[in-house]
Design a protein around this nucleic acid. Structure first.
Lengths: 224, 224
DNA sequence: ACCTGAACACCGTTCAAGT
DNA sequence: ACCTGAACACCGTTCAAGT
């Protein structure tokens, strides 16, 4: 009788790629990017490092698969039939919310934008952008502008969240730290930064994100 | 006679924060992000790890300082007096070129956007955006849209360059790999991605970057 | 004040050996 | 076919000891 069979009888699933990815997501959600190690994963799955490598090629492979899992679920029910601008906003918001729930996804997306998770996003954005009346020459440029913006915000949110976590600060405490740092800058060299610092605490990430997206959509519309 | 004095007499500079940063930049430029280790740095500077820690707080501190060095130089001679849109384009291009020359900078910028390197960029972009006739309420949103776009492209270029390097591929070879991967996707699920793959080899990163920037600038102008 | 370098507590990955 | 777990070749960081 193999160990697997015994496990199944005790109600535990046998080791599989899916279980490994699932456990990885849990580890990443609980402790951030640094929490995913083969040792922590081995312990959680009650197995050895070598067993994990049987199902997964590398840490990179694992991270990418975990990321794709989250992204695919986030994009799952966005209707293709919606008005193009609304569909683009919906995809962008789905990504925002996915990264809000799983900050490490924002970091991972930026590291491999040609791979499946980001290609899913590109397909959606590109598909709807093409329905916007953009001519062929400008289609790639418009799509990649939108994608780069989405990726930029994703990376920022991820970095901010993970730093705040590392410093054990809430959002307000983190923004206070940044505002304090900015207010200490030289007044002659950093007039804008010092002036804007006061707005930092009051700003709404999600609203700003949508406002920026609409700036690009307006730019595309005025070109088309 | 101290070791430092001897070194100075032999024409070698004594260990200092500046020399450490300089050597770090060289290491990063030559071998990418993974090439900067305290062991490699110790060897290059003919010293021990502990000596480096006397001048530098952590690897994070070191990476940030190296990044700031490159960014400060890149932004050094951009005139404040230029027309706002031109100044914004000039700053954005300076960042593009800095990351082109030092891909690791693109990764580092995204990890600490509230710190000095990114604050330099924010100050420039924000200053000129405020001269664009944007009202106070929209100023932060317009500035952060521009910054997030710039950061998104920076991260992408950095990731692509570093992956190509790791795979020992030139730009053309890398794009071929991506195009091939995309052409293998399901035709029903990925119509846009498959169609756009053909344009991938011919595209011009710098031109696309500027086109995207102009989309945002046009959106801002049509709002103001 | 500044530097040395061994030691510590980790990593990802491999691989002979088991079942 | 799948799993074990020790071993390998690394990391960043610390710290007693030197000058």
């Amino acid at each position: 009788m193999t160990r697997n069979t015994r496990r199944t009888q005790r109600g535990e699933a046998s080791l599989s790629r899916e279980r490994i990815i699932e456990a990885s997501i849990a580890l990443l959600d609980e402790g951030g990017a640094t929490a995913l190690t083969f040792r922590a994963l081995s312990e959680r799955l009650a197995t050895g490092a070598g067993a994990i490598y049987w199902h997964v090629a590398s840490k990179d492979d694992l991270l990418n698969a975990a990321c794709d899992d989250v992204v695919a679920r986030g994009l799952a029910d966005i209707a293709r039939a919606a008005a193009p601008q609304d569909a683009i906003r919906a995809i962008a918001l789905a990504m925002f919310d996915a990264i809000d729930a799983h900050p490490w996804v924002g970091t991972e997306l930026g590291r491999a934008s040609w791979k499946l998770p980001m290609v899913r996003v590109m397909e959606g954005i590109g598909f709807h952008t093409s329905r916007l009346g953009v001519n062929d020459a400008a289609l790639w440029q418009a799509t990649s502008a939108l994608l780069n913006y989405i990726l930029g915000v994703a990376g920022q949110n991820a970095a901010n969240r993970q730093l705040a976590q590392a410093l054990k600060l809430e959002r307000a405490g983190f923004l206070d730290e940044v505002a304090t740092m900015w207010s200490g800058l030289d007044a002659a060299d950093y007039p804008f930064t010092r002036a804007i610092g006061a707005q930092l605490r009051a700003h709404d990430d999600r609203a700003d994100y949508l406002a920026g997206l609409d700036l690009i959509l307006r730019g595309i519309a005025s070109e088309a």
